[in-house]
Amino acid sequence: MPVSPAGPLSRDPIQEAHRQWGQHGWGEVADGMAAITSVTRTHQIMMARIDEVLRPLGLTFARYELLTLLSFTRAGALPMTKASARLQVHPTSVTNAVDRLEAADLAQRVPHPTDRRATLIKITEAGLALAATATAELNARVFAAPGLSDSQLRQLIRILAEFRQNAGDFSSENSASSWQPDDPE
């Protein structure tokens, strides 16, 4: 899949921006600018790959994540507030995703059995089937070959986990340095 309609650029624009940043007197922060810009561009490339798989299935990544989260639960349901927390998104985003999933008969809102104030999001059989199909497609077409070697992937996961922990994304009791993806070596 080409990254841009015109094909690959002849030069790395982030490397050029790094050079320019240094030339204009901001050399001490050029590495930080290049790192953040690189992560942002990498995110765009990854999301384009994911969208290419999910769009024909009628899903966005947000809706796919919610369906998959629900499919992982024992009862196929979660309170909306828990779904929001686990997906690390604003409750409004979950509400919008549920609205779309309900319209497509992939999920439904149901009353919480013990808390009248809470609403559960429950995945339907069609939602389970679509989540399984989408996961198989993403695994085969995106996740199996993300563009880095196994050792590079493990290193990247550790670095990003450390960054997220330092940013307050999760507590230090779940230390990023102890987070280890499966290592077949």
Rank of each mutant, 00 (worst) to 15 (best):
Glu28Met: 05
Val29Met: 10
Ala30Leu: 10
Ala30Ile: 06
Ala30His: 03
Ala30Thr: 05
Asp31Val: 14
Asp31Trp: 12
Asp31Arg: 13
Met33Leu: 11
Met33Ala: 11
Met33Glu: 05
Ala34Asp: 01
Ala35Leu: 15
Ile36Gly: 02
Ile36Gln: 05
Thr37Glu: 05
Ser38Gln: 11
Ser38Glu: 02
Val39Leu: 14
Thr40His: 14
Thr42His: 14
Thr42Asn: 14
His43Met: 13
His43Gly: 14
His43Cys: 14
Gln44Asp: 15
Gln44Val: 12
Gln44Leu: 15
Ile45Pro: 01
Met47Val: 13
Ala48Gly: 11
Arg49Ser: 13
Glu52His: 09
Val53Glu: 03
Val53His: 03
Leu54Gly: 01
Leu54Ala: 09
Leu54Val: 13
Leu54Trp: 05
Pro56Cys: 12
Pro56Met: 13
Pro56Gly: 10
Leu57Gln: 12
Gly58Phe: 12
Gly58His: 13
Gly58Thr: 12
Gly58Ala: 14
Leu59Asp: 01
Ala62Gly: 09
Arg63Thr: 07
Arg63Gln: 15
Arg63Ser: 08
Tyr64Cys: 07
Glu65Lys: 15
Leu66Asp: 01
Leu67Arg: 03
Thr68Gly: 05
Leu69Ser: 07
Leu69Thr: 07
Leu69Val: 08
Leu70His: 05
Leu70Met: 11
Phe72Ser: 06
Phe72Tyr: 09
Thr73Pro: 02
Arg74Asp: 15
Ala75Arg: 05
Ala75Glu: 15
Gly76Tyr: 04
Gly76Asn: 06
Gly76Ile: 09
Ala77Asn: 04
Ala77Trp: 00
Ala77Thr: 04
Leu78Ala: 08
Leu78Val: 05
Met80Ile: 06
Met80Cys: 06
Met80Val: 03
Met80Gly: 01
Thr81Met: 08
Lys82Ser: 12
Ser84Gly: 02
Arg86Asp: 06
Leu87Thr: 03
Leu87His: 05
Leu87Val: 04
Gln88Ile: 08
Gln88Lys: 14
Gln88Thr: 07
Val89Glu: 00
Val89Ser: 01
Pro91Cys: 06
Thr92Met: 00
Ser93Asp: 07
Ser93Trp: 00
Ser93Leu: 07
Val94Cys: 00
Val94Arg: 00
Val94Pro: 00
Asn96Glu: 11
Asn96His: 10
Asn96Ile: 04
Asn96Val: 03
Asn96Arg: 12
Val98Met: 04
Asp99Phe: 08
Asp99His: 07
Asp99Cys: 03
Asp99Asn: 07
Asp99Gly: 01
Arg100Asn: 06
Arg100Trp: 03
Leu101Thr: 00
Glu102Ala: 06
Glu102Ile: 07
Glu102Val: 13
Ala103Trp: 03
Ala103Asn: 04
Ala103Phe: 06
Ala103Cys: 05
Ala104Val: 02
Ala104Lys: 11
Asp105Gly: 08
Leu106Asp: 00
Ala107Pro: 00
Gln108His: 07
Gln108Ile: 09
Gln108Arg: 11
Gln108Met: 09
